[in-house]
Design a protein around this nucleic acid. Structure first.
Lengths: 121, 121
DNA sequence: CAAACATATGAGCAATTGCTCATATGTTCA
DNA sequence: TGAACATATGAGCAATTGCTCATATGTTTG
């Protein structure tokens, strides 16, 4: 759609041409995917979780170690790790009493670095 | 740090070696950047904003057109666009009465598509 | 200038979020 | 088996979020 089409009255045109609307919506991913996508990015939208992901980028770590490093409660970290695990961003591996978490998705590093590029401008 | 170091007692080791903690923190971006990064990703963590970004990926659009296409209030969209603009993800360009919004960052498309790859597995 | 249109914005509210606190589960070792 | 350790989890609460509603700002045209 060309912006110059809107010269007289933008939204009257919109109301008249619902076919254009449908065409645009057709080019987008299905509604449900967009919800899943937002939920996925919600994971990166909290600084505690971002910190955890950066730590796991260095090496796998146990819950207590993550909590100590970030200066936070074991409980708080455990809750966040559960969320990260549900979203399939981390994987858990038990070794005796302790449980090691590691990154479970190859996209994480590049997503983080692209976000980082954006804020550094 | 090697996971096998934790064989006896993970978190006692952690408490004893704060230097390791500091070394890990040193490899991460500074605290403030991590907050900014989380704020940046927060933008993608809402389905309305994701939808807006996908629409603008097709072409620039005015507020009323976005609202009509998504079946949402002009006010709701305008609020979200203000947020997107603050985060420098979209740019506004006035043409008479109407204001056209367009994507303002080259990373958006690849960030969205990498997220999309993740949820499609 | 007044009316019509497009967008922006402040206040308020329901829903969600991220933490804390207390407690439960699971593992090892004496 | 019981004590110590590592982690998980449910309830509850303060803070944040995304919307609505009413209204303000800004632009064009008669």
């Amino acid at each position: 759609m060309n912006p110059s089409d809107h010269d007289k009255s933008c939204c009257e045109v919109v109301a008249a041409h619902e076919n254009i609307t449908k065409e645009l919506l057709g080019k987008m991913p299905p509604e449900e995917d967009l919800y899943d996508l937002a939920d996925f990015f919600k994971v990166f939208g909290d600084s505690t979780r971002v910190k955890i992901l950066y730590l796991l980028l260095c090496s796998e770590m146990c819950v207590g170690h993550i909590a100590a490093t970030l200066g936070m409660t074991q409980s708080a970290i455990s809750h966040q790790l559960r969320f990260l695990k549900q979203m399939k961003l981390v994987a858990a591996k038990r070794e005796g009493k302790t449980i090691f978490y590691s990154l479970a998705d190859a996209h994480i590093e590049s997503i983080l670095s692209q976000g980082y590029e954006h804020i550094k401008e």
